[in-house]
């Protein structure tokens, strides 16, 4: 009974995402599936970032580097070495996790804005490096051999499969986020977020805990990168490491509420929904970026805890459900 209640917080997130997956399946509509894919991808990435940002309190402005790097490595093995997409996704996740481990040892010593700046530098350095790296196709990037799709029953089937893998990765991201949040490890991370020095005095081994949080927040983005470039059929440096995408992820986490499992989901929904509306709206289409900017500014200034944080503050009885 007690255990069941501990996991209540995961229920709403799982239901929301299950609805998201079933929607295109039920309607059988391909463009719904594309939209759903985009939102699931945003949820998976934002939830991963939330482990570092929301639970640990470190602001990464270059989190997309793990998506790009893992994606490149995975696609290279799928495309050039003939590995299956499954093996490619696995190697993409592992290599991003490894990168995070090495980077984390170095840059997690930095605090506050210095850490944020370092993550920007790393993303830009990586982008510039891949641009020069011939094995990954340099500035041209890599294009998937069409024959690769044949193993999965042709392009259409491969895209369908990609959608289900995306759904699986999103569920994995949510479960990981929930497990971290409700674990002892997660309690240590939250202590670091609130006051790193006090946490260390209480025995939290902050350097290790931060590094593992960084690693956990990097693995799923690496896997999503492989899947997305596989589905897209190609990858280029500026598509793999867009700085603005890192910031969009921050916005999503912030919109929904940092440090909660549900927050990044709501944030991803709201952000993608708003963008979808603005891009197609005849009035706002030309200045959609500005309108997004105004909305973001209003949220940062007036509800910095995000939607879920705001609800939790107003209605404490919802705390257990809106974890």
């Amino acid at each position: 009974m007690k255990n069941w209640r501990n996991h209540l917080g995961l229920l709403v997130p799982l239901l929301v995402v299950a609805g998201m997956v079933l929607w295109p399946v039920a309607t059988g509509n391909l463009s719904n599936r594309e939209n759903s894919f985009t939102i699931l991808k945003a949820i998976a990435l934002a939830s991963s970032l939330n482990i570092l940002l929301g639970y640990t309190g470190y602001v990464s402005f270059g989190h997309i580097v793990f998506y790009g790097f893992g994606g490149y490595v995975g696609l290279y093995f799928v495309n050039e070495q003939g590995w299956s997409i499954w093996a490619g996704i696995l190697v993409g996740g592992i290599s991003s996790g490894l990168l995070a481990f090495l980077l984390g040892k170095a840059i997690l010593r930095l605090r506050g804005a210095y850490f944020a700046l370092a993550t920007i530098g790393i993303n830009e350095a990586m982008k510039a490096f891949v641009n020069n790296f011939d094995l990954f196709g340099g500035p041209i990037g890599m294009t998937l051999n069409f024959s690769v799709y044949r193993a999965y029953g042709g392009a259409a089937e491969a895209l369908r499969l990609s959608f289900y893998i995306m759904a699986g990765l999103t569920f994995a991201a949510l479960i990981l986020s929930h497990l971290v949040r409700t674990s002892k490890f997660g309690l240590g991370l939250q202590a670091i977020r609130e006051n790193e020095d006090a946490a260390e005095v209480m025995g939290v081994v902050a350097p290790d805990a931060k590094t593992w949080a960084y690693v956990l927040s990097a693995i799923i983005p690496g896997m999503v990168g492989v899947l997305f470039f596989f589905k897209n059929g190609n990858v280029e440096p500026h598509v793999a490491f867009p700085l603005h995408a890192s910031i969009e992820l921050l916005v999503m986490v912030m919109l929904g509420g940092q440090g909660t499992v549900l927050g990044p989901i709501i944030g991803a929904f709201a952000y993608q929904g708003m963008r979808g509306f603005l891009v197609t709206s005849p009035i706002f289409k030309d200045i959609q970026l500005s309108v997004s900017g105004v909305v973001l500014l209003l949220i940062v200034l007036f509800i910095p805890a995000g939607a879920i944080g705001w609800l939790r503050q107003r209605i404490p009885s919802l705390r257990r459900v809106l974890a």
Partner: peptide, 26 residues
């Protein structure tokens, strides 16, 4: 005083228990 402001009083104390000498489970 250095409270972990956004955690509950119970969670604050649990941090001490979990990461202190006895390395307790949650």
């Amino acid at each position: 005083v250095q409270p972990l402001n956004d955690l509950t009083v119970r969670e604050n104390v649990m941090v001490g228990a979990c990461f202190g000498r006895e390395n307790q489970s949650l």
